[in-house]
Design a protein around this nucleic acid. Structure first.
Lengths: 350, 350
DNA sequence: ATGAAAGCGCTAACAT
DNA sequence: ATGTTAGCGCTTTCAT
């Protein structure tokens, strides 16, 4: 006799296809085929199996099928921090496409530490994820851990912060172009002595933003003294402090282009405290289009990175690489969008 | 002879303990024991095994061991959206503690849709996660999918948005208290006709914030007309629109307490456009302490929810439940913190 | 200290 | 259309 269980109170050990098979006096293979709509099962049987599965609240064990098939339908995502607008937006995009294709995503935060990045790569490899999407930590200056991923023949897609040394698929925005356009726009608005907050040179994004800044200045024959480029860690506090130091040194810049919105904000707040009129006496532009940039006063000119789309593309690249023969690495560069807001718009252009 | 592979170029099929065993002329059991520091292996053997494992770049297959042990060392996290400051902060907290205890986390975004929530519960159950941490979607009004989790004897911890109907572990902040204190503070600053933007009543958080608002008003004998409570979806746009409607109806409130920072911002921007002086003529307070609230002008009074700590506690609750006999559900309530900023501080108190 | 054997739940190749 | 068999990689008895 079939043991009755109400679906609401089925308890303890999960139901397996073997259980279903026994109850229906058939075999696991048939049940498995029926459940997954594989051919080779009679219509009647199939319905019978599916009905029972539902009734007994059968949950397929993806761990087991993953082991058997050598596929986990899981994606690893490695980011510096999940609670930064840029990264959480990228993750949102990744999740959307992943969900549509029935992939789960495992999230890893490196906190910008190389150690954690390495450890997470190991974890993901051990979890036999089907692919890894990653953005480098600030500390990353060695890539052997990422090479392991390639050796394991697992698709690896970098986004935003990418290693120059590795020939993998990647997706970035054109940081040079974004910076160039931002600075050009500032120059058009009459700013001349524009300083720059930069991040570490070994990261592509900051290097390229700096290059874009330099190119724009050069194209207008504006001199860039060495001390006009300030390297800091791009936090709000760092921005504030760097700005203060600049003034203390007796420099008289009339604008700032920062590689990060947060550092731009720090400087902006500091200048406001010092009673500078922004954008009148001092112009400020940032990078990344963090949410707060459109809400502050004056609203902050910045560069949008299409973060959500970047996430979506990432997953799509992975999907492309995960089928059939490995295609050559795709290198995608998205166009940034300059968002001109109040912090750089002088009443009268000079 | 042992086949040589350089660690950098080990390729194709991953190494298994069986491979290691064969090379060392021993058995998988011994290798397994050696690798996991189980007793019953000679010191010499252990070293031999570990050295070879490192040399051959052995990655333990957690899918296989998970299947065998019935544990995946994975946690499922279900949130409405990953790119909201509150949730991404909670996730950051969850990840930190999880990482310390060698758990991975799978992230699920419901987009506030019940369908997706249900589907993700199935996915997580199939993935045999060891626990699930969840915050309800806006649409969730039925809980059978969550009951399945309990039936499967998997720890389930709710945070922030919790179902009243289920007796599970949960962690919330004292929304009533937060709202009460915020409104009390506004009254202390001379505001009298304070309106309230509320979310759906079936969600504990919004219900409690509304109750806190009502209690504070009542405690000061301030009347609350029916139309002073406006239900909307708490987005920036909704806030702006609701505020406009309020004015169009001829109401003359002198302050707003919003259950969400975004809706508060919408109203604030609208009022500024209408040339109201904030906080002079109109006071505004929000809820959640989104990052932008401290950067806008005037900075927005709001209630901090200790989101990061909430995430950390969540994981700790899970850890507690995952060992030994199931303890009775823990119900934790964190104290909110009222952040008094400029948007509610009148120059002269009345 | 080590090995042999069984099995976690599922799928796929090979029968029939 | 269905059943049989083997095995994914690992861990855990149970022997020896």
């Amino acid at each position: 006799m079939v043991r009755q269980k109400t679906s609401a109170f089925q308890s303890s050990k999960p139901v397996t296809i073997k259980d279903l098979a026994e109850i229906l006096h058939t075999t696991p293979s048939t049940v498995s085929r029926a459940l997954r709509d594989k051919k080779g099962v009679g219509e009647k049987r199939r319905k019978q199996v599916k009905d029972l599965a539902r009734k007994m609240n059968y949950q397929p064990n993806t761990v087991a099928s993953g082991l058997r098939k050598g596929k986990s339908r899981t994606l690893g995502v490695i980011v510096p921090r999940v609670n930064r607008d840029f990264f959480s937006d990228v993750i949102a995009g990744i999740e959307e496409v992943a969900f549509d294709h029935k992939y789960s995503i495992i999230i890893c935060q490196t906190h910008d530490q190389l150690d954690r990045e390495k450890q997470y790569v190991e974890t993901l490899l051990s979890a036999r994820v089907d692919g890894i999407l990653a953005s480098l930590s600030l500390e990353t200056n060695t890539y052997d851990h990422f090479r392991k991923i390639l050796n394991a023949r697992i698709p690896l897609i970098f986004f935003d912060r990418i290693p120059a040394e590795m020939d993998t698929s990647r997706i970035v925005i054109d940081d040079f172009e974004g910076a160039y356009r931002a600075v050009k726009h500032m120059i058009d608005n009459g700013y001349r002595r524009i300083i720059h907050f930069a991040g570490p040179d070994y990261l592509n994004v900051y290097r390229n933003r700096k290059e874009g800044y330099l190119a724009a200045m050069k194209s207008c024959n504006l001199p860039v003294e060495e001390d006009m480029i300030i390297h800091n860690n791009l936090t709000l506090e760092a921005g504030r402090k760097s700005m203060e130091e600049v003034l203390n040194k007796g420099m008289v810049p009339d604008a700032l282009f920062s590689a990060s919105d947060y550092a731009a904000l720090g400087a902006l707040l500091f200048m406001q405290e010092k009673k500078f009129d922004i954008p009148g006496q001092f112009g400020v532009a940032g990078f990344s289009n963090e949410k707060f940039t459109s809400y502050i006063n004056p609203s902050l000119t910045t560069v949008d990175q299409h973060s959500r789309e970047m996430g979506r593309y990432c997953t799509e690249l992975f999907l492309k690489e995960s089928i059939g023969e490995k295609p050559p690495p795709s290198k995608i560069m998205l166009s940034p969008e300059l968002l001109i807001r109040k912090s750089t718009q002088r009443k009268s252009k000079q």
